[in-house]
Amino acid sequence: MSIEEAKAAIVEELLMYDDWLDRYEYIISLGKDLPGLTDDRKTEDRLIKGCQSRVWLDSRREGSRLFFDADSDALITRGIIAMLIRVYSGQEAAEIASDDFLFVKRTGLVDNLSPTRANGLASMISTIRGIAAEAAGEDGGR
């Protein structure tokens, strides 16, 4: 599935629910389905800075593709990062790096993406983007 297809699927699934609590139920269920990380991978260097809850993101490369695993001690945050992983994990690093990530606004989960302490999603996005840009840069340099 392409990045665009994955985004469209998630937005559609979320907007199926009119009520916000049902949307959160859905996000929480996404979080519960996320395999998560074993405790030994929940290290300080994998912690995303700037979130109210703790979020760990691990990444690995296979060729030019990037794969992500993540975990969080908060359920909704876990669901949100699961959503991002569904869209971006397994995609080309260069495509992730050049993506605008604006689909998260269409989910209605955030009104703005300015990185503040209360806005963990913005920090998650900038971390994923940073990892992708670094990986894509290395590829381009070869």
């Binding site: 809850s53 908060a74 945050t77």
Partner: peptide, 9 residues
């Protein structure tokens, strides 16, 4: 239960 989850709901 995480405080942030409650606040979001």
């Amino acid at each position: 239960v995480h405080h942030e989850d409650i606040a979001l709901i």
